[in-house]
Design a protein around this nucleic acid. Structure first.
Lengths: 123, 123
DNA sequence: TCAAAATATGAATATATGTTCATATGTTGA
DNA sequence: TCAACATATGAACATATATTCATATTTTGA
């Protein structure tokens, strides 16, 4: 298990450069499960249409038809994106007659936007 | 420009359901530029390998070879991912002899991780 | 009960993204 | 100057993702 700096590795051509650093980083590494869940979570924010939906819903509950008009996208595309957001548990919905009203279901979304905006503003 | 609730729209089959809400949301909508930049920014976090790189670099400066070993990925794949992170200005590098050392270049990365972790832990 | 509206969804297609392979570039020590 | 190492990168390929199209489901009002 524990390699020392004398052992060969197949990753690079020669020796690993900093064994001590690697050991300490491996100790504190996130589990595969956590990393994969995190990636899935952020992936959802990596699409302009979904961001616009989330941002709109942070201001008001909206039905699908409202969102189609706001986004300028057809109903099917919007519904597909809403499904992605639902499955990531970022939004929730309620039915009222023929309409389905969507709203945010995560109090961190605002923070996510803030951090992202800080990054793009400062750079 | 300003539609009232009597006018037809091609997005849905009939009338927009909530004109007032749409108007106020349109007023506060993010610009296309900002939304696209935000999406590009979050897209970078939407990959497990890049998350692991960022998380590792939050603990220590590392050379490419270290990262290959840590990730169990080949050198080319790692370099390609480092390029993505560089271009998003999330990491910086310095050369020291034959090695190139990478480190974080954005003080918001920690916060991004925290918010993401909160989400996956709570749900 | 039936037609029309609002929404959801599967399949197909187009596009974006990640990895690999081969090779180029930059650096060092002999 | 040259060989070997560390890293970067273009092209090809495989996979993932977004959108469209057609159609299914749910609900309401007549």
């Amino acid at each position: 298990m524990a390699l020392n700096s004398e052992e060969k590795l197949d990753v690079c051509m020669d020796f690993v450069v900093h064994r001590e650093i690697l050991d300490s980083i491996n100790e504190n590494a996130l589990s595969d499960d956590v990393v994969n869940e995190l990636a899935e979570f952020f992936k959802v924010f990596g699409d302009a249409a979904r961001l616009r939906i989330l941002h709109a819903l942070s201001m008001a509950e909206m039905c699908v038809c409202d969102l189609c008009e706001f986004l300028g996208m057809n109903q099917s595309a919007v519904s597909h994106q809403l499904k992605v957001l639902r499955q990531s548990r970022l939004i929730k919905y309620r039915r009222e007659g023929r309409n389905v009203y969507y709203s945010l279901d995560d109090e961190h979304i605002q923070q996510i936007f803030e951090v992202g905006l800080k990054h793009i503003m400062e750079k």
